[in-house]
Design a binder for these strands. Structure first.
Lengths: 187, 187
DNA sequence: CTAATCCTTTAACATAAGATAAATAATTAC
DNA sequence: GTAATTATTTATCTTATGTTAAAGGATTAG
C-alpha cells in the first residue's frame, strides 16, 4: 500500500513540518461497500485519498443515476464543482468495495496554504493534472464510439470489471446499460 | 475594456509589486482574423488574455479540424494539456476576429510563483474555476442532445454567431456541420 | 436455504446523427 | 467588380444508440 505522502511526492516534495501539518487534518475512514461516503446537498469540505478500495462520484439526472467518475487505490477523489465554488454539491460519493480512505479536511487545508506555500503548490499541481485529464476526457467522449470508449476504459483500468457493476460503467461512458450489453456481446 | 488586472481581481487581489512583476512578463499582441496565435508541435509556454477579439483552440482529429474551446473578450486562453505537462501541444490557437491579446510568459510566471505566493494563488484559482467548467461541460456533452447543446451555447454566448463560423461551432458541439445545419433548420 | 431484490442480457422497434453528394450563399483575392 | 474560394444548406441513405419490455443470472437478507 502506497502512503498518501508517497502519492504527494509524485507532485511536489514536502518538508517534514508540512507533512505533519497535513497529518493533523487527516483522518482514516474504514467504510463498507455500497455505503455513502458523502451525500447530496452539502458544500463539499473534504478531499479524499483512497488507501484501499474503490469509489465513484455520481448524481441523478432526470431521476437516473449517472456516474461522473471512478477513483481507485492510491488516488484522490473530490467533488471539485462544490469544493472550488462553495456551492452545495448535487453529487454524492459512493463506496464500491470495502475501503480505507484518508479524509483531508479541506477547510483546514486551505488555511494551511497561507502558512505552507509548498502545500498550496502540491494541491495546485494535483488539480492541474486532474484538469488536464478532464480536458482529454472530453475528446474521448466526443470523438470515439461507445465501443471505443469501453475498450479504452478496460485497457486503462483492467480490473474495473471486477470492482464496478456494468450499469455504472455504462453511465460513466454516457450510454445506456442496454447499449453497453450490446457492445460487450459483439466480441 | 476591462483590464487584465480587473480580471485577476475577480480571483485574488494582488499587491502593487506583484502586479508590476506580472506586467514585466506580459506583452501585447495585435493580431488579425484567421492568423495563428500559436501553432502545433511546441510545448506551450504562454498564457493568453483576450483584451479584445475572439480565439479558439483547435486540433486535427483524423484530418478533421476540431474546435476544443472558444475564448472571448476578457478571458484567459491556454493549452493546458501542454502547459501543465510539458508535452508538445497537438493543438493550435487561431484568432477568429481582429484581436488584441496579452501574452503572459508562463515560464517566467511559474518562476514568479516562488517569490509571490499571491500570484501562484491567483492562477491556482483561475485554473480551478476552469477545471470546474470543464467537469460541467462533460455533463452537457453526455446528457443533452445536440440541439440542446446548441441552444445552451447560444444562450450563454449570444454573439457567437456573429463571431464564429458555424463549422467551428459544430465541431465544438461534437457534431458534423450537416447535423448542425439540420438542427438550425428546425426552428 | 430460500425468497426477494438487483444486475445483465436479449429482442424489437424508433430516432438522432453520420456520410456522401450536390446546390446555394457568402466571403475573399485580385 | 468578378472569379475563386469557402461556408452553409438540403437531400438521401445508413448506422449507432435510445426505449421499452421481458427473461435469465447473481447477490443479499433473513
Amino acid at each position: 500500500m502506497k502512503s498518501i505522502f508517497q502519492y504527494f511526492q509524485l507532485y511536489n516534495s514536502l518538508s517534514k513540518e508540512a507533512e505533519n501539518a497535513i497529518t493533523e487534518i487527516c483522518s482514516i475512514i474504514k467504510i463498507k461497500k455500497n455505503q455513502e461516503l458523502q451525500t447530496f446537498g452539502h458544500t463539499c469540505k473534504t478531499i479524499y485519498y483512497i488507501n484501499k478500495g474503490t469509489a465513484r462520484i455520481y448524481y441523478y439526472k432526470d431521476g437516473i443515476d449517472i456516474t461522473e467518475s471512478f477513483a481507485f487505490e492510491n488516488n484522490i477523489i473530490a467533488r471539485v464543482e462544490s469544493l472550488f465554488t462553495g456551492n452545495p454539491s448535487r453529487k454524492a460519493i459512493q463506496i464500491l468495495e470495502d475501503s480505507e480512505i484518508v479524509a483531508i479536511n479541506a477547510t483546514q487545508l486551505f488555511k494551511l496554504y497561507d502558512t505552507y506555500p509548498e502545500i498550496e503548490r502540491l494541491f495546485r499541481k494535483i488539480f492541474e493534472v486532474a484538469y488536464v485529464d478532464t480536458v482529454n476526457r472530453i475528446e474521448g467522449i466526443q470523438f470515439h464510439s461507445a465501443e471505443e470508449r469501453y475498450n479504452a476504459l478496460i485497457a486503462e483500468e483492467p480490473n474495473i470489471l471486477k470492482k464496478v457493476p456494468l450499469k455504472h460503467i455504462a453511465s460513466y461512458l454516457g450510454i445506456t446499460q442496454v447499449s453497453l450489453s450490446r457492445i460487450r456481446a459483439i466480441k
